[in-house]
Amino acid sequence: MLTTKTLLLDAIFDPQKGWEYSPSHVPLKRIIGDDGNVNYAVTVDDNVIMVCEQSEWKGGEASDVPANRLVAKVYFTGLEISDALAFLQSNAGTSGLPAWGLDGDGDLTLQTAFPISADFPVEWARKQLLVCMALLREATYDFLKAVNQEEPETAAPQHLSSQEDRFDWDSAKQVASVAGEFLKAFLR
């Protein structure tokens, strides 16, 4: 089903509806996926976080629980997972927020999500999404720092989102300044 309409996603990133971050501070790119769904590539401290709305369960499965949710995800490639148990333990330690997983290509992912509805207030969704992105940014920073401590400095992990080009992860070692602003925004 092809659609370019969203319940809340477009409104969240609309400056006229309260998005207060300039494109130079937090670059955004609206992408229409092959499946017709709207995605946003949000760059936070040189990390690309893919944000989308989920409106149905994968594979068309039926459920009494609505599928509508906002999803924020970081994709990693070029990493070989030697201890999947560590990722499962990490998921338990964070109560699944954020949670590690594997995508259909076998690439490592880190994601968060929360349920939404058509009448969910945009400002609440924005604040919740900002917290989710801050959690992803912090966990990504910590993960890459740990990976880089185990490998030579020249062997920085490669990163690729399913919809974005490769970018330089050496700059990912910086402090999460935008993520901190996102957390402050939620506390307002």
Rank of each mutant, 00 (worst) to 15 (best):
1 M>D: 05
1 M>T: 08
1 M>N: 04
6 T>F: 01
6 T>D: 12
9 L>Q: 14
13 F>A: 07
15 P>F: 00
16 Q>G: 02
18 G>Y: 04
18 G>H: 09
19 W>P: 07
21 Y>F: 14
22 S>A: 12
23 P>E: 03
24 S>I: 05
24 S>N: 06
26 V>D: 06
27 P>V: 00
31 I>P: 08
32 I>L: 09
33 G>R: 02
33 G>N: 02
35 D>L: 01
36 G>R: 06
38 V>T: 15
38 V>C: 08
39 N>I: 01
40 Y>F: 11
41 A>M: 01
43 T>G: 02
43 T>I: 12
44 V>W: 00
46 D>S: 02
51 V>K: 08
51 V>L: 13
51 V>I: 15
52 C>V: 02
54 Q>P: 05
54 Q>T: 08
55 S>D: 05
55 S>L: 13
56 E>F: 09
57 W>E: 03
58 K>R: 04
58 K>E: 10
61 E>Q: 09
61 E>L: 10
62 A>V: 04
62 A>N: 07
63 S>Q: 02
63 S>V: 02
66 P>A: 05
67 A>Y: 03
67 A>E: 05
67 A>Q: 03
70 L>N: 11
70 L>H: 12
71 V>G: 00
72 A>R: 07
75 Y>W: 15
75 Y>H: 15
76 F>P: 06
77 T>H: 13
84 A>H: 05
84 A>Q: 06
85 L>R: 09
86 A>W: 00
86 A>Y: 00
88 L>S: 10
88 L>H: 08
91 N>V: 08
92 A>P: 03
95 S>R: 07
99 A>Y: 13
101 G>V: 02
102 L>N: 03
110 L>M: 15
111 Q>I: 02
112 T>M: 15
116 I>R: 14
118 A>Q: 13
119 D>L: 10
125 A>S: 02
125 A>Y: 00
125 A>P: 00
130 L>M: 09
133 M>E: 09
134 A>V: 10
134 A>R: 12
135 L>D: 15
137 R>V: 10
138 E>L: 11
140 T>E: 13
145 K>Y: 13
146 A>T: 08
146 A>V: 06
149 Q>C: 05
152 P>A: 08
155 A>P: 02
156 A>I: 07
157 P>R: 05
161 S>D: 15
161 S>A: 14
164 E>P: 02
165 D>H: 01
167 F>K: 11
170 D>C: 03
174 Q>P: 04
177 S>K: 12
178 V>I: 15
179 A>P: 07
180 G>L: 14
181 E>T: 07
181 E>R: 14
181 E>P: 03
182 F>G: 10
183 L>N: 03
184 K>Q: 14
184 K>F: 10
185 A>P: 03
185 A>V: 04
186 F>K: 12
187 L>R: 09
